[in-house]
Design a protein around this nucleic acid. Structure first.
Lengths: 137, 137
DNA sequence: TAGTAAGTGCAATGGAAGTGCATTTGTTAT
DNA sequence: ATAACAAATGCACTTCCATTGCACTTACTA
């Protein structure tokens, strides 16, 4: 079992108390969170710190950004073996119109999309909206 | 050939000079535009008017909203026969990372997406990012 | 252990979305 | 035609999130 410290070190990220806390927070969540979500969870921490921590995680491919159409950027931990840097291996996200939560459906890969001649596809963002399993139950 | 006036009337939208201008502007563009784009095109008009005009058009299914991941909402005219209100008939959008333009690929329908048990899909947003035909030439 | 680089916190800025209200314009009924 | 009403427009203001500059603190390194 790899510790969080080892994981961060392997990604060239310095270990700080704040970063460990934020990582743990993300790991506990199964859903994508906004900056404000993190901010509310750590009232003592400054918003800027959270913002830059997330940016750092993002650059090092520890979290990925999700644009679920709510207008607010959300973030979620990349899975083990998630290759967010490899743009052809993106999973899709599900946004629940009822509880407003956004979930990574990591098992569901995005199908190959055909684009017209002359267009080069580098990246795909796919968000399915509807009712999640908890709300439809 | 249906005039713009006739089109607006058929959708229960009152005809005003401003609305005709905005419609023409959108019709001339082949790409999705932001509110600021429209604002810059009509410097005399107030932003609120543009904002509410677009909202009206959207409610009446004359334009559809696009979230291309830039964080700024864009809008584009619905095609003849575009059934934006029917959520299963959505086309995809292409966002060029080079020129930053977003294009409706109306001929390219979104493939059927499978979601896990318990999830109900109501709506799909799919944005392909890459290089458009003009920039890749 | 001193020096340097990175991380953190505070304050402030900027952009876009959205709202309340007064004014103008358009529609309808007398 | 015009009075009365409804819708559209313009202005001012607010809010929310993203982002940055700078000072200060913490962590690594020679």
């Amino acid at each position: 079992m790899e510790t969080i410290e080892q994981l961060l070190e392997s990604k060239d990220i310095r270990i700080t108390a704040m970063r460990l806390l934020i990582y743990k927070f993300l790991a506990e969540k199964e859903i994508a969170v906004t900056l404000s979500d993190i901010e509310n969870a750590f009232e003592k921490a400054d918003r800027t710190t959270l913002y830059r921590t997330i940016k750092t995680f993002e650059e090092k491919d520890i979290v990925h950004q999700i644009d679920d159409g709510t207008g607010i950027t959300k973030y979620a931990l990349c899975e083990q073996g998630c290759s967010c840097d490899i743009k052809t291996d993106l999973h899709l996200h599900f946004h629940c119109n009822n509880c407003n939560e956004t979930i990574c459906l990591t098992d569901h890969k995005i199908p190959q999309i055909k684009v017209p001649d002359g267009f080069v596809s580098e990246n795909v963002n796919l968000v399915v909206k509807g009712i999640c399993d908890k709300c439809s139950g």
